[in-house]
Amino acid sequence: MLSLILQLIAAIFFTGIIIRTKSIFSGRKGPGILQPIKDVIRLFKKSAVYSETTSFIFQIAPTVYFSSVIMAMLVIPFGQSKGIISFNGDFIFFAYVLALGKFFSIISAMDTGSSFEGMGASREALYSMFAEPAFFILMGSLALLTGHTSFQEIFSALHIGSYITYALAILATFVLLMIAMIENSRMPIDDPKTHLELTMIHEVMILDNSGFDLGLILTTGYLKFAMYGALIVNLYIGVIPYGFTIPLFFIIQFLMAFMIGTIESFMARFRMGHNAQFIFALTSVSLLIFFGALLILGKFL
């Protein structure tokens, strides 16, 4: 429960901080931190425009997408306190329930019969497929390291002590951060601020969504950021008492948002054709973590 509340609070500020960081780096004052939430509230009040090509799939897809992310958030623990749903192998459920949302967002983009949205859908399907192995191998190595198979047990048994574990923690943070960027369609995979439909991934998929549905999709994006942020926080907090971890949670979330803003201010998006290789390379980083875990456990004998 604690974890859900913290994630919800973080979600309110996260995107605002990214936007603010970017505007400060580009020399503008920028909108207030709560602007994204205000946008969403405005959208929730509006009526929608639907494409004449679309069917009911287009109308239920944002709902399913939103629900899937909420379900995934319920699984995430916060240090010692379990998520609302917690069982052995819950990270498998986490990944697959997110896939449900992706499935629906892809078919809803295809439902419009537009060539732009098809482009985005095709890319989304391919990239999210490549990102998944990295996550599963990462969780597999953490499971191997700790001897548990649920998020909460893994994270509370994770002790960062020796040099190798420092390396592993950094690599794991990198992998999770990159997965978060891919899942949220941010740089360096996707540029949310591009003006050309041909070079978008996520933005082009939701071109035809409007009103309440668009609000749901945007909210889902904010939630997803906070969710992955919470996962990364969990790597570090372990058994530290709440008095320290709750501020730490917000500090790490803030740092992450700041970092994303910085990256997006100073980096260009990858060429579309190179994205797949880059994402699949993440899998090899995860494999590194896996071999590191084997090394720690002394199985290289």
């Binding site: 009526s47 929608a48 425009v49 494409s51 004449e52 090509t53 709902t63 537009s114 035809d208 009103g211």
Partner: peptide, 17 residues
């Protein structure tokens, strides 16, 4: 969603081209 949207008037347009 259905309940909220029931009072609003949606418009039907061609897909964004």
């Amino acid at each position: 969603r259905k309940f909220i949207l029931s009072s609003r008037k949606d418009s039907i347009q061609p897909s964004w081209g």
